[in-house]
């Protein structure tokens, strides 16, 4: 009797783990396998297409080593970093306000979270409509009397600095951060606010010394998700950035879709660089987090 329960217990445990297997296999085969297969495609020697450069295995990667592409990396990573940090900070501040007075302003929650359900393609389009020199905001500015001609409105779409791109991303990602962290902030407030007040702490001291430090892993994780997504996303820079802007996903997709099979390894190599950067950033974050925990902290 004892033995059978023990065996069936072990079997049950095994069954529970069995449930993970399909999803794990799926990710291993398609995410990891797909990446590795792509990698092998990018090593395909040019010989398949032409007779020269027969043994050049890394030609696609070598071709990327030039100033223009390095600049593109700078621009792409810069935009992604700016979007993730700006969205992270704005989202955090907004969630703090929302939690503080959510009882009064329920409808704000709806507005603050609605953009999560709207595709990036449309957010790009929405911002094109309002930010263009002939857009809706420029009409407002004219009607109010801030500007007197269409040219006086600043260039925010297809511009040099990617202002439109960053704004369109923020429109999507600030609500994402709010959606992600506000339930946790709500819980942290109910757990710690009273204790902090009892020790004399003000609202801002409670936020700075208690709420944000405990929330940190979750918040940074959310920013990493935003960073990784922005790094690889195509629609917004494709619609809102100028052609010479240098967004790698856009350049890669052009190589992939317009210049034939011959250039496919280049497209893969470009995306591979992005994946590598995100992996590197992630590794650094995980390393920092582990070190933080190894000092003995337990947050959740």
């Amino acid at each position: 009797m004892w033995r059978t329960t023990k065996i069936s217990n072990q079997l049950n445990k095994y069954k529970g783990l069995l449930g993970i297997l399909p999803a794990l296999l799926f990710m291993l085969i398609f995410f990891l396998g797909g990446t590795l297969h792509s990698l092998s495609l990018s090593f395909e020697s040019k010989e398949t297409f032409s007779l020269v450069l027969q043994e050049e295995k890394f030609w696609a990667y070598k071709e990327l080593i030039n100033v223009t592409f390095l600049q593109s990396i700078g621009v792409t990573v810069g935009i992604a970093a700016a979007v993730s940090v700006l969205s992270g900070v704005t989202g955090l501040i907004a969630s703090l306000f929302l939690v503080e007075r959510s009882r009064h302003w329920k409808w704000l929650n709806i507005i603050f979270q609605a953009p999560v359900g709207i595709p990036h393609l449309l957010s790009a389009y929405l911002f094109m409509q309002v930010l263009m020199q002939s857009g809706w905001y420029s009409r407002f500015a004219y009607q109010i009397g801030w500007i007197d001609s269409i040219e006086a409105f600043p260039v925010l779409v297809h511009d040099e600095w990617g202002v439109g791109v960053i704004l369109a991303y923020m429109w999507k990602e600030v609500p994402f951060i709010i959606l992600l962290i506000s339930p946790f902030i709500l819980k942290l407030f109910s757990d710690w606010r009273e204790q902090s007040i009892a020790l004399g702490g003000s609202f801002s001291q409670t936020v700075r010394w208690v709420i944000v430090p405990i929330l940190l892993p979750m918040w940074v994780g959310g920013m990493w998700v935003v960073f990784a997504f922005t790094l690889g996303a195509y629609e917004i820079p494709a619609l809102l950035a100028s052609t010479s802007f240098g967004s790698i996903p856009v350049e890669a997709f052009q190589e992939y879709s317009q210049f034939g099979l011959e250039r496919q390894p280049i497209a893969i190599a470009m995306n591979m660089v992005l994946a590598g950067i995100s992996f590197l950033v992630g590794s650094i974050l995980i390393f920092l987090q582990l070190r933080w925990y190894n000092q003995g902290r337990r947050v959740w």
Binding site: S38, W224, V225, A228, P249, I268, N271, M272, A275
Partner: peptide, 8 residues
């Protein structure tokens, strides 16, 4: 979520 998936 954490690594761009276009390559895969």
């Amino acid at each position: 979520l954490f690594i761009p998936y276009t390559v895969s």
